[in-house]
Simulated assay, not measured.
Amino acid sequence: MSHTAHIRSHRKPRRSTPKISVRAGVAGGVLSTLAVAGAAGAANAAEPVTQTVELPTLTADLATQVAQSADATQQAAANYELQAERDSAAAKAAKQAKSDLADAKKKAEATKKAEAARRAAAERAASRSAERTTLSASASASTGTSTSTSTSTSTATGSAAAVIAFVKAQIGDAYVSGGTGPNSWDCSGLVQAAFKQVGVSLPRVSQDQSTAGTQVSLSNLQPGDILYWGGAGSAYHVGVYVGDGMFVGAQNPSTGVVEKPLSYDPPTGAVRVL
Rank of each mutant, 00 (worst) to 15 (best):
Q209M: 01
R132L: 10
K98V: 13
A39R: 00
L218W: 14
A232D: 00
G179S: 14
A156N: 02
I164L: 04
T268M: 15
N44S: 01
G230I: 01
H3T: 08
V242N: 11
K196W: 13
Q170L: 02
D87E: 12
Y236N: 05
G29V: 10
A42H: 09
S88Y: 01
Y236W: 11
A165W: 06
A102C: 07
Q251R: 15
L202I: 03
T143E: 08
E131K: 15
A212N: 03
E81Q: 05
R11Q: 04
K196M: 11
K260L: 15
V49D: 15
A102G: 04
N220E: 10
S184V: 00
A70W: 00
V167F: 11
G243K: 14
L31E: 08
A94S: 14
K113V: 02
A139H: 05
S217F: 12
R14Y: 14
S177P: 00
S21A: 09
D71C: 00
L58A: 13
A91F: 08
L274T: 09
D103H: 12
S150Q: 04
A120Q: 13
G158Y: 03
G224H: 14
R23M: 12
G178W: 04
V200M: 05
V242D: 03
G269Q: 10
K19M: 10
S127G: 09
D100S: 06
Q75G: 05
A90M: 14
A126D: 02
R86L: 10
E81Y: 03
G189K: 11
N252W: 06
H10Q: 01
T133Q: 08
Q51R: 14
A90E: 09
G230T: 11
D208F: 07
E47I: 06
V22Y: 05
A89Q: 15
M246R: 11
A45S: 13
A93W: 13
A160E: 01
A120N: 13
H10E: 03
T255P: 07
K107P: 02
E81A: 15
V200R: 12
V216H: 09
P182T: 10
T17S: 08
H3Y: 00
S152I: 02
R86S: 11
A46Q: 10
D61C: 08
S146H: 09
A270Y: 03
A232V: 06
T149C: 06
G245F: 00
P261E: 04
T143G: 06
V163Y: 03
A27I: 10
K95Y: 05
A120D: 15
F195E: 05
P253Y: 00
W185G: 03
A45K: 07
A42M: 08
A169C: 09
A232K: 03
I20V: 13
W229R: 12
K107L: 05
T157K: 11
A116E: 02
T145F: 15
D186M: 09
G239V: 01
V66H: 11
V191N: 10
T57R: 07
T211R: 07
I164Y: 04
S136C: 07
D186A: 03
V200E: 00
S136R: 11
R118Y: 11
S188E: 09
D71N: 09
L62N: 15
A76L: 10
S184C: 01
G231H: 04
A43P: 05
K168T: 05
S210Y: 07
L227Q: 10
R14D: 10
Y241E: 04
A130E: 00
G213S: 13
P56W: 02
L262C: 03
E47Y: 02
Q96W: 11
A72E: 01
R204M: 06
Q222I: 14
S32F: 01
V49N: 08
T145A: 14
